[in-house]
Amino acid sequence: MGITQILFWILTVAALFSAIMVISSKNPVHSVLWLVAAFFTISGHYILLNAQFLAIVNIIVYAGAIMVLFLFVIMLMNLNKSTEPLKNRWLQIVGIVSGGCLLLVLVAALKNTEVSKNMAEMGTGEAGLIKTLGRELFTTFVVPFEISSILFLSAMVGAVVIGKK
């Protein structure tokens, strides 16, 4: 077992554990912090795939900016006490059953696809490096890239307009 594989298993266990803690923590602030931990483990996976740029952007954008805003809002709303309303037991059972069905469908659909046969290139792929990514974004995918940036801009302007009202 190479060092990459050992790291992969550690990261996978950590990612799953922190993801589960996100939804099972009673305190919303703890949930946010577990989510930050989950982002870090995912970034670790990116680094194993030699996608360093994706890894660091994941940390800057999600862990560094979006999660800070989440934390910001939760702290201001003072959700310290567990204010989650008690749900009906039948509702909970229905939720479990439908969630399980979704999982079943996903696993069944992905079981025999091409994806599962292609192993990821560990530590050798070039797809996530900034040069490759930049070239692809500004040649092959330049139109969708620019359209999505205009979308972001309009969302920003919209937020400012609503905020000014």
């Binding site: 930050v36 360093q52 660091i56 800057i60 862990a63 800070v68 702290m75």
Partner: peptide, 19 residues
């Protein structure tokens, strides 16, 4: 090969200690 971005990423995490 992402040196500056790494610095930037760590700086953006610095806020967690305070928060």
């Amino acid at each position: 090969n992402i040196g500056i971005l790494y610095v930037f990423g760590v700086v953006s995490l610095g806020v967690y200690g305070i928060m």
